[in-house]
Design a protein around this nucleic acid. Structure first.
Lengths: 229, 229
DNA sequence: CTACAAACGGAGAATATCTCTCCTCTTCGC
DNA sequence: GCGAAGAGGAGAGATATTCTCCGTTTGTAG
């Protein structure tokens, strides 16, 4: 019995045996791939990833037998981090628009700009794990937007799809070798975008500052459904 | 004398001789290259451009002997269209923030998202024509922002560099095969971003709606100098 | 501390991709 | 219609990328 338990543990944690460097390398590879894919697309040369990660090519292929597997792993990683951030924002921020702002800034830090570049290219289709991860992101983003709008703190003519796409675009890394350290600008731009969404709290102005010339938006609010084509 | 004049004209317009298809093909190539470069970067395969343009590869090489020449031509084209739009906005819009808004929407239509991807990659260094074109864009953008801020219609903690980078990012095409027709969303997002910049006209509220929690921006306003590294 | 096994790195052959010229056929302008 | 300039597209040569193989290193257990 004790043998069975030990055996089961050993089996279940088989991956964890040589963990010290193996697991660390896996992390490094995923992190490097996130950067590289974000800048050069998911077709980027594999050995650019290995060099960024500081590992040999064999190490990459040992962890991810082909490109799709790697893209899959990176998407999953990013999506999980993002929904995690959103969940924390929902739980810990009192003001609903503050929660949305915290989520937005966090999602940018976690690489939402990279994620949205990867979705179209490859899979994300018919993979249960990825579908689940996406549903978690979608659910938390929808909840954040709904609360902000319910509280009268966010424009009604903007949808959660608008927010996700705009965040992704603002957070996209520029191609290698661009001057400005975008990183620092990105947060400014995200906050400005959010300022364009925000309605002042408390005072109940009927149009919340809308109605000024030029403030109307063309088209309809984008839903998440719109983003899935 | 008449012969001299005719000769001079013929020389000066030598390029225009076989104009009907040659000039049209040049336009097509530049337009195709703008699309392709925007999506895949300036390193995109040439024959992707030729196929997009609907011409043979020899035709492309006849107009642009190498990749740099093509990038040069596309940058020039885009930059000129953008400064043209800005000039028109300055001349024709009474309200300074409306002028900025018109410029922003126009710049997006003309492919500012593509332009900013091309600058870093290649040349744009030590080429008189490109420098001049860039100076024209810079000058008109600076003027638009300055007027809007002088009139108290735009936040002071935002610089012209912020505006240009954010516009470029929002306007970047997504990699091929993305679901949502971004085109339609982009204008919404640009207008939302501008709404985040705008201060209400006329009433002279000292903080123009700033001072709300979360409305402050990290860092300093970005100048155009910041973008040149 | 030693021994073992698992993991690592990187060179390089096989392969895929891209560039750019060459030659023939089409189209324009007169 | 005629002549010349331009267009198109196949493909040889050059370049870049993948992914395996094997000698070396490194972490862990006894």
């Amino acid at each position: 019995m004790a043998d069975d338990v030990a055996g089961a543990v050993r089996t279940r944690e088989a991956k964890a045996v040589r963990r010290a460097d193996q697991a660390r390398n896996r992390e490094r590879i995923v992190a490097a791939a996130r950067e590289v894919f974000a800048v050069r697309g998911t077709g980027a040369p594999m050995d650019l990833i290995t060099r960024t990660a500081g590992v040999g090519s064999a190490t990459l292929y040992r962890h991810f037998p082909d490109r799709d597997t790697l893209v899959h792993g990176v998407c999953l990683d990013v999506a999980d981090r993002i929904s995690e951030r959103g969940r924390a924002a929902l739980d810990e921020e009192a003001d609903p628009f503050e929660a949305l702002r915290r989520f937005a800034v966090g999602a940018v830090e976690e690489g939402i700009g990279a994620l949205c570049l990867m979705l179209p290219d490859h899979l994300w289709v018919d993979d249960a794990e990825l579908h689940a991860a996406r549903r978690r992101v979608d659910a938390v983003a929808e909840e954040l937007v709904r609360r902000a709008q319910r509280a009268g703190r966010m424009r009604r003519d903007v949808g959660v799809g608008d927010v996700m796409v705009a965040l992704s675009q603002l957070a996209r890394p520029l191609p290698e070798g661009v001057g400005a350290d975008i990183e620092r600008l990105t947060e400014r731009h995200v906050r400005l975008f959010l300022a364009g969404l925000e309605l002042p709290g408390g005072d109940g102005l009927p149009d919340g500052g809308l109605g000024r010339p030029g403030a109307e938006l063309p088209g309809r609010p984008a839903t998440l459904e719109d983003l899935r084509r």
